[in-house]
């Protein structure tokens, strides 16, 4: 009990409330910006224009889409499990906001600083799978079921290389505290510079791409086979929340990559990283990584399911295990 009281006293109630409102705003803003960027870049890659009608270059399109989703009815299928069907989008969205609270945007700009921040983020991210499962099962629809089952198989397989690759960074810094991990990379020595951690970085990017269910690993929502996968039956803002949570998860994936491997809020060339400049560097790294993910998504075709499983179990997990051993050896030697 004393710990809870201490926690509330350190971060006063008003600050918590403001932080949560701001973070929810950031999650939605991120979805709007990323949705627009994704549509524009996809269009550019496929030699077409993308949204052009509303606003200059169609920049208001996503906001109007949001308004449209808010105005639409949330249809619950007759044979669906009503309570779980409505619960699933919220369960998908809430952990995203909770994870955003633990991300260090800069040295002074964060929701909460935990000494086990990394474990907290991974634990909350595991609830996302649960939401997808509940959505798929409660829809009472074979496409949703198959989407959910694929998603779980994929998430179980790819969580292991993610954890192993992050663990090599934790071994190097001997801390789960995200702020300490960022501070350990001040100056030019970002962790992606070291060869063994660079391997971990690449493994993390591939596995993270699969963990966020994005192409070329978007089998849970493969349009050509499963209509829309686990969110086939969702309409209106139920679907909207899934979309927002998906972009939120993408942001989290990219920001963990930039915190653990690319120096977080440290500027390049040892440039100044005050509260605002730090946030600028952090966000620019995150957005570069997210743009790379979009680029990959619209460039490569979807893999087959057996290829997906083989990639995780036969290549990524052994590689990351060996890499972890090498890292442990190096940390002990140096």
């Amino acid at each position: 009990m004393q710990q809870i009281i201490d926690l509330i006293q350190t971060y006063s109630l008003l600050r918590m409330l403001i932080a949560f409102l701001v973070l929810i705003g950031i999650v939605f803003l991120n979805a709007i910006v990323m949705g627009y960027l994704e549509r524009k870049i996809a269009a550019r890659i496929q030699r077409r224009w993308g949204p052009m009608e509303i606003g200059v270059q169609g920049w208001l399109q996503m906001i109007l889409d949001g308004v449209k989703m808010l105005a639409k009815q949330l249809i619950v299928p007759r044979d669906a499990d009503r309570f779980l069907f409505r619960l699933a989008p919220l369960l998908c969205f809430t952990p995203v906001v909770m994870i955003f609270a633990a991300l260090p945007f800069s040295k002074a700009l964060y929701g909460i600083n935990l000494h086990i921040g990394l474990i907290y983020i991974i634990a909350m991210a595991s609830i996302n799978v649960f939401a997808i499962l509940i959505a798929g099962w409660s829809s009472n629809n074979k496409y949703s079921m198959f989407g959910a089952m694929r998603s779980v198989a994929q998430n179980i397989a790819y969580e292991i290389p993610i954890l192993l690759s992050l663990l090599s960074v934790v071994l190097t810094t001997a801390s789960f505290d995200l702020q300490k991990i960022v501070e350990a990379q001040s100056g030019w020595l970002w962790f992606a510079v070291y060869p063994n951690l660079f391997v971990a970085f690449v493994i993390y990017l591939i596995a993270g791409c699969a963990e966020t269910n994005r192409a070329p690993f978007d089998l849970p929502e493969a349009e050509s086979e499963l209509t829309a996968g686990f969110h086939t039956e969702y309409s209106g803002f139920g679907f909207g929340l899934f979309a927002v949570a998906e972009y939120g998860n993408l942001f989290i994936m990219a920001s963990i990559a930039s915190i653990m491997f690319l120096g977080g809020w440290n500027g390049p060339f040892g440039l100044a990283s005050g509260p605002l400049m730090g946030a600028f560097w952090f966000l620019s790294k995150v957005f570069v990584l997210m743009l790379v993910m979009i680029w990959v998504r619209w460039t490569y075709p979807r893999v087959r399911f057996d290829q997906l499983m083989n990639l995780a179990w036969k290549y990524l997990i052994p590689f990351s295990l060996v890499n972890l051993l090498i890292t442990a050896f190096l940390v002990k030697m140096i």
């Binding site: 009990m1 004393q2 710990q3 809870i4 935990l114 000494h115 086990i116 474990i119 907290y120 991974i122 634990a123 909350m124 595991s126 609830i127 799978v129 649960f130 499962l133 779980v152 998430n155 179980i156 969580e159």
Partner: peptide, 22 residues
């Protein structure tokens, strides 16, 4: 969490909810 062990809380969520229940 109430008893002040943040690490155990996170491990409980990660292992029991994120792995066993799934």
């Amino acid at each position: 969490f109430y008893l002040g062990s943040m690490f155990l809380t996170m491990m409980q969520i990660l292992i029991y909810m994120g792995a066993v229940c799934i």
